[in-house]
Design a protein around this nucleic acid. Structure first.
Lengths: 361, 361
DNA sequence: TTGAAAGCGCTAACAA
DNA sequence: TTGTTAGCGCTTTCAA
């Protein structure tokens, strides 16, 4: 009397096992179990026997064997720099979109982490070794020689890449316009000394936000105050470090009316330092972030929304399309770049400038 | 004159290609490229030729072929329920630990998402089809019949499982003690009407936090006020809904001195509702979360820290150990459960109870 | 309708 | 020191 446990073995059942159990060949079992896409069909009787046997044996087709034969794993790779101990919300938001998009496309997602961009050349090609059908690269600081070593046999799409690479579609958001609109809005509120705590030099998105900041001033016929653009890492630590250094350099100078940070994480770092000095946001100084990550939403921070989840979803769509084209040897559309719009989010950290004169303590 | 581009083809180079290029057989190439673990060794000359050929061809061993032959993919699976549009910080923190641990162990991580626990029976076995060597299951609400269908051929460890399953190690944190200590501390501050907005019924961790809440009262010789324990989802929405309903039911009754939420996300939902009613935290009412996710850290919320990253890292360690045992057919240590300690985090949302009498508006 | 055979790219035993 | 062979589990022609 076989118990339900009896069928559970350390070894997974193979197609041959199923065939044996059903009294047919392994390939008959294969045909019966798959939709019978091949020329030959199996009889209803055989199919029923095979299905029953498969169920009895808890048969699951082996993914690696199938992957080897099909040259497809139904798995997408997502590579990103994920250093630091602090979780990265920017990544999480994009990841969330990727996961959702992949699920919708019947794909799973394997995550590859980079500790730094120097190791990208060595590691990225090693991911593209058949375990994934395509790769999504969060690439704000991809080395410039990437074009030489990115593998050609695995389709790649990038998100927020800092460079155009032939054959690689890039997804990004309208950073410059987002920054321009927000800073214009701030200028419209009367802010004049707007300190921009920007992202790292070399990150295209960070550069574009600086450009938006500058263009907003130019458009308003204003010159940004000198030394009001800082550059540091896209992290709370970066923001904290940058603003603290700036405040140290500017003792006795007028306190900025507002801080425009190039990311929510940077904004949070700034917020910490400002609060530590007893400054109230937004009564004494306004604070604006960029991204609209969960951090901004939960703290009602004013920010520029990037549709990060959408970027992830779209990346999956574009990638699966490329994979299809790659398989059918079609030339993939040479679409350069997909740009999604940003949106202003007016939270509780942006108000009209203070009337009192405050100086840096 | 071959350009650097010439070697880049749509097709990845195979071992046979390398052998051909080097003028040796494919297996000689294999032996030369791998550490030569087999009996036979290759001559230095052959090895050099093979290595050169491999480099020229940008050869990367195919992971699926290797996986099929070796029965190992060096990939760990991470399965979790990831519904909702809002990113899940609890998941992110554990995930971060898993990623780090996996990187340290030379493994990559594939993420499988469940939309609901009903589909677990169908989907979880389908992940264990050779593409992963082992599975980490975030399983707060695993169906009770899981023992019947969890595959035996793939090692599994669970995190925060709601049940003990033979052969599956579980990692969790000391929820009951964490809740007990925090509530005891709150009672010590003078709080008497502590509203516990708990997690879902059926989640063991949520139950344990309720138990800690109750034991703290019992230990202090106090009876918790009636109808002061709520249960809803582990999310901001759950917290928001639960507390709003409670406030609706208790118009005119005394406002609680404090809210003890079973997660940071729940706490955030409560915070939103309280703020919306013009209540100040902690001046009018204290608020305490659970988890110490990034959300709590960034908002300086009082909370009970669970070492989520550590749970992830340890899960990887235990899992890789199990995988090793599985391979060598050793009986894995029948270690039941690994419990990591929690820690109180006294943030800025917990203060002494208000002196004024406030009622629910 | 069914079975036999080849091959996906690699590893590992066995011969030479 | 090398090449040959077989096989991992599956899919897919091609014959029967």
């Amino acid at each position: 009397m076989p118990s339900s446990k009896a069928q559970r073995s350390r070894r997974a059942a193979t197609l041959a096992d199923v065939g044996r159990e059903a009294g047919v060949s392994a390939m008959a079992a294969s045909v019966a179990l798959n939709g019978a896409t091949t020329s030959s069909r199996v009889s209803d009787d055989t199919r029923a026997r095979v299905l029953a046997a498969a169920q009895r044996l808890r048969y699951r087709p082996n993914a690696t064997a199938r992957g080897l034969a099909d040259r497809r794993m139904n798995t997408l790779g997502l590579a990103a720099l994920l250093g630091g101990d602090e979780p990265n919300l920017y990544f999480l938001e994009v990841f969330n979109g990727v996961i959702k998009g992949a699920a919708a496309a019947g794909q799973t997602v394997t995550v590859f982490t980079l500790d730094n961009w120097a190791q990208a050349q060595q590691r990225i090609p090693s991911f593209c070794d058949g375990r994934i059908d395509g790769l999504i690269l969060l690439a704000p600081e991809l080395p410039v020689d990437a074009v030489d070593w990115l593998p050609e046999h695995t389709p790649v799409v990038s998100v927020h890449s800092n460079q155009e690479i032939a054959g690689i579609a890039n997804l990004e958001s309208d950073d410059e316009v987002g920054a321009f609109r927000m800073v214009s809005h701030m200028l419209g509120l009367g802010h004049r000394r707007i300190l921009h705590v920007g992202g790292p030099t070399g990150a295209l998105g960070a550069d574009r936000r600086v450009q938006g900041y500058l263009r907003a001033h130019a458009d308003a016929g204003l010159a940004p105050p000198p030394d009001h653009v800082l550059r540091d890492a896209f992290s709370a630590e970066g923001g904290s470090r940058a603003i603290e250094a700036w405040l140290g350099r500017h003792r006795g100078a007028p306190l900025p009316d507002a801080v425009f940070a190039a990311s929510d994480a940077i904004a949070l770092g700034c917020m910490e330092r400002l609060s530590a000095r007893g400054l109230r946001v937004p009564a004494d100084i306004s604070l604006v972030g960029f991204d609209d990550t969960l951090l901004a939403r939960s703290s009602h921070m004013a920010t520029v929304r990037q549709p990060l989840g959408q970027l992830g979803r779209r990346a999956v769509e574009v990638l699966t399309e490329r994979i299809g084209a790659h398989r059918s040897k079609t030339t993939a559309g040479t679409q350069r770049s997909i740009v999604l719009p940003t949106e202003m989010v007016l939270g509780q950290t942006l108000a009209a400038p203070r009337s009192a004169a405050l100086t840096v303590a």
